[in-house]
Nucleic acid binder design. Structure first.
Lengths: 197, 197
DNA sequence: CAAGTTTTTGACTAGATGGTCAATAACGTA
DNA sequence: TACGTTATTGACCATCTAGTCAAAAACTTG
């Protein structure tokens, strides 16, 4: 009944994500997006609405995927919750010490949002809460297993892990190497050690 | 012998810092800078050279000041090194939960630097090392006082604290409140607890 | 007070940017 | 095969950008 699209939306979004992750929202030009996605300007506008909207779309997809990945990594049952989170942190150390110029869209949005009422702000806040939720769930398991100190506050610990990983991302970006980042991750995990009695 | 300047360089730099902290490097326009500093465009160019150069200048001043502030806070002798760092982290929690839109220039540079060879990259790396150095010194004291676990690695712990504070900054920006941020800071400090024997 | 030097001022420019328009192409359906 | 609908294309535009130029202003010193 009408001319069909030549592109798959999710492919376009993921190409755009790449551009945004490397350049950021402000510094990415429409031309970069056009080149990366292969679409014409107008097609981009028809399908998404504009640069910001496209970013928002990429952000939410990115955030969804990140949460799913973490959740999956933390949800396997072949190891204790404590071991899961340990493995996760070490994986993050490696991922963040890769030398590409990518910065997660959540971090980009955080830094580039212009105000409390900016849609970016809401999206990032939601992203952080989502991520913290995943951590909290895992930590809850660990607590149930008796692997956490009695006085541990699962909620704030979850946020703590979000903070540490964000910090590690920044450090990785700054050129801190894998060895140091791994040591940092291990340090961060000490928080979970039960005081030996 | 020649027409004197109407401005004080350090004032201009600090006005510019404010602009950059709020908008970022890419998003800050020359016009913003002109308005904030009160100088004409050409005067800015005469004195500093351009937007990037001005940012670089602001960055190094900001970094110097941050390091000095932390160093000072951690250097007082009326409390143990461990108590100092505890106080410092709690102060950070409060600072980062303030609702202004500022982001430290170091973080901005980190995120906006375009490549390994970008001068911004070198500056941020130096900044992080400087900060880590300050933490390391304090932790060394704590170790000497016997307040740290035997197996504590002062170097990586120092970097760990840089990571945590950067992460807290991002979280604060995302709207995480003072209470939660304080809890995160306290969690972060658990790393320093000696296993009770 | 005049010369010399540097700052300031404000008009100017070349290029890039996000975004739009109108014509055309491609498909399903009747 | 003709029609209606939607996608694509590429030219177009107003605006904003960082950065420049040349003339005027302000100060010190001789």
């Amino acid at each position: 009944m009408a001319r069909p699209r030549k592109f798959v939306e999710s492919d376009v979004v993921s190409s755009a994500s790449e551009v945004f992750a490397v350049h950021g929202l402000a510094a990415a030009t429409l031309d970069d997006l056009v080149r990366a996605t292969g679409l014409g300007k107008q097609s981009l506008y028809n399908a998404f609405g504009g640069k910001r909207e496209l970013f928002l779309r990429a952000l939410s997809e990115d955030r969804e995927e990140a949460a799913r990945a973490v959740s999956e990594a933390l949800g396997h049952d072949d190891a204790s919750a404590l071991e899961q989170i340990r493995g996760h942190m070490l994986r993050m150390a490696i991922e963040f010490s890769s030398s590409d110029r990518r910065v997660s869209l959540t971090t980009r949005a955080l830094v580039e949002s212009t105000g409390e009422d900016d849609p970016l702000s809401a999206a990032t806040k939601a992203g952080i809460e989502q991520l913290a939720g995943v951590y909290a769930q895992c930590l809850e398991h660990a607590r149930a297993d008796g692997d956490l100190p009695e006085d541990a506050n699962v909620q704030s610990l979850a946020v703590y892990f979000v903070a540490v990983t964000r910090g590690m991302e920044l450090l990785g970006r700054a050129g801190v190497g894998r060895g140091v980042l791994t040591a940092v991750a291990l340090d961060a995990l000490r928080v979970l050690h039960k005081p030996q009695s």
